[in-house]
């Protein structure tokens, strides 16, 4: 049985990601200055904001690629990087951190597919080696996922033989192969030619429709308006404004948000 700490911190159990007053510094540079975000189960949160505002850093904290300095950060009721026992936070061992990470999928701006493996090998490597799935089972699941992102015929291709949009769809399938509780996207379409953006966004829309919990850092305001359940505007290491995407885009409250939206729209 997993211990959950929803009640204790007055968090609704339907919350997948909860951050309150999360702070993170690199040396003397404070990059996250008290971030408060709550992402309910099965919802989509889009994070927008100017360069350097700490969007990537926040995503990287969620799967513990970076360690936070203070604040409360929980994923599915568990402290990121810690275990609460006897009223003390015990730091997790490396293997436990890996086990937690395996449940959180991440999609990168530059895809980061493994170039020395075929598409299928990219998808089945971690399910077999980390989750301990049988090869046949992992293969079957991988092929189904490839069908879902429209790349069933590319199973034996190498990443470099694919277009950017195809690579990113493979990267999404690779993350899904681990059967994650939540998917994090860091500017998944920023490195793509404009005509390839659509195919990736449409895969993401399908995922949202199927009820996948997603946190998406993006500059695609159109996507945010259509798909997101909440829009979060970050600036200077804090959340400036958050709310319903349509309302926020139509009628931004803070002047900084208005300024930013005017630039990207």
């Amino acid at each position: 049985m997993k211990t959950n700490h929803f009640e204790r911190f007055a968090i609704s159990p339907s919350v997948m990601i909860h951050a309150s007053d999360v702070r993170k510094s690199y040396g003397s540079l404070e990059v996250l200055k008290g971030v408060n975000i709550s992402v309910p189960n099965g919802s989509v949160a889009c994070i927008i904001g100017p360069s350097g505002s700490g969007k990537s850093t926040f995503l990287r904290c969620i799967n513990h690629l970076e360690e936070i300095n203070s604040g409360l950060l929980l994923v599915d009721g568990d402290f990121v990087g810690y275990r609460l026992k006897d009223d003390k936070l015990h730091e997790l061992r490396a293997s436990q951190i890996c086990a937690r990470r395996a449940e959180i999928g991440m999609v990168f701006q530059h895809f980061n597919l493994f170039p020395h493996m075929t598409v299928l090998e990219n998808l089945i490597e971690a399910p077999i080696k980390v989750r301990g799935e049988h090869r046949a089972e992992a293969r079957l699941h991988a092929l189904e996922l490839l069908r879902r992102v429209g790349l069933a015929e590319k199973a034996t291709a190498f990443p470099r033989q694919l277009s950017g949009g195809q690579q990113q769809r493979v990267a999404i399938a690779r993350a899904l192969a681990m059967r994650p509780k939540v998917l994090l996207f860091d500017e998944p379409t920023s490195a793509l030619d404009p005509e390839l953006v659509g195919e990736v966004l449409s895969v993401m829309k399908d995922l949202a429709r199927d009820g996948m919990t997603m946190v998406v850092v993006t500059h695609e305001i159109g996507f945010a308006r259509e798909v997101a359940d909440q829009l979060i505007f970050m600036d200077g290491g804090t959340v400036m404004e958050q709310g319903d995407p349509r309302e926020m885009i139509a009628n931004p409250q803070s002047p900084r948000t208005r300024e930013f939206l005017a630039k990207v729209l």
Partner: peptide, 20 residues
């Protein structure tokens, strides 16, 4: 990015080194 992608898939450092 290769290391980060592998870490995000839950790979341990030894596995990551050996396979990626």
């Amino acid at each position: 990015g290769q290391t980060e992608a592998a870490l995000c898939l839950g790979m341990k450092p030894s596995l990551l080194l050996r396979r990626i």
